[in-house]
Design a protein around this nucleic acid. Structure first.
Lengths: 196, 196
DNA sequence: ATCGGCACGGCACGGATCGTGCCGTTGAGG
DNA sequence: CCTCAACGGCACGATCCGTGCCGTGCCGAT
């Protein structure tokens, strides 16, 4: 045994975040408490509070740390195909178990804690939005998207319906649904109104 | 004095809901507690628990009771104008103070409490959705909407971007933004692709 | 006029969790 | 080998939960 305890130089930060996600998946975010996280991680409560000021930000960090390497947009020249592929992957990850319910809870927490809302926006939403808009802009310059179309609006029309399903109606988000959104959006975005 | 006390036949239910909304607006939903509501309403905690099983459902009832008379859709023959007018009113009410932040908190609570999510859907979202889809269907039959367009999807594309702003980016929802969504949606929905 | 039932307000309770303070220990760098 | 910051463990007051009990007052039925 090289390690009497699991710790040592070992960074507690990662241990705590892992315990957070484990507990959240087992009992749900609603029943998550910092006391339980500290106990599960085998650390004192101080060690948690020294790193995170609130349960929400701990949870935000924990979730993002597991999925930091967000996939970059491919650029095959076909915007619609690139968007579809990218959204498929994002939804498969964040719209379904095991991460779906946790991401849902995170957004819920953001409605109560402004710090979580700000962190979620700056560290996840905005970067994703920027990548999508960059890809759309490339398409716009290539004439695949109407030149005067507001790309921020396009981004919202792409994301909004998915979040609506995730947060409001809580219906599953299928690939067919994504296809429908893309089709509806592009039928209005195409510079040549005739789609077929 | 016809009433020695403010109460009597007077229903406590309304008093409690009013106290709930008052406290939520003063200190925010996050700091709302049933103890505080009971104290503020001048009733015992039992009187609250006898009526509502959880804070979330109390809050749901309180919010909906203040805005039950949801406006019906006009049908002037012009779908786009009718939709715009209806969405303007809904967003002016639920997307701005004083109700905006509270509605936002309600949706957040729905992410933690399945009973709130179910109640919100059945008592507010679904009725609104049904009305919108009925109006869209009338338009579809009159040829103002492409005959094969999925109206549920249309509803999601109308609502999604607004909820995305309310819940995720937390940007204000302006009339101009609503116009943009409507324009984008209809440019793809119109049977004749040429909009102008 | 009297009575019984029921919802009520007030109070108290055990339990959970919060965020903080105080111990004695431990391990890494000097 | 020594120092010191971070640590685990424990305890604390505070808040809120959901429930139990008590005495009161209003109501309809008798």
């Amino acid at each position: 045994m090289t390690a009497r305890r699991a710790t040592r130089t070992d960074d507690r930060t990662e241990t705590i975040m892992r315990a957070t996600l484990d507990l959240a998946r087992e009992a749900g975010y609603a029943k998550l408490s910092i006391e339980a996280v500290a106990t599960r991680a085998g650390v004192g409560k101080h060690t948690v509070y020294r790193r995170w000021p609130s349960k929400g930000l701990l949870f935000l960090d924990s979730l993002l740390s597991m999925n930091e390497p967000v996939l970059d947009y491919p650029d095959t020249g076909d915007v619609l195909a690139d968007l579809r592929r990218q959204i498929y992957e994002a939804v498969d990850l964040l719209g379904n178990p095991p991460w779906g319910p946790l991401y849902q809870a995170l957004v819920g927490e953001a409605q109560h804690d402004p710090a979580v809302a700000a962190g979620l926006n700056e560290r996840f939403i905005r970067p994703q939005t920027d990548k999508t808009i960059a890809r759309l802009q490339a398409a716009q310059e290539q004439g695949q998207v109407s030149p005067d179309f507001d790309l921020d609006l396009a981004m919202e029309i792409l994301s909004g319906p998915l979040y609506f399903r995730l947060l409001i109606t809580q219906q599953p988000i299928t690939h067919a649904h994504i296809d429908g959104v893309l089709q509806a959006l592009f039928a209005g975005m195409s510079p040549r109104p005739q789609t077929r």
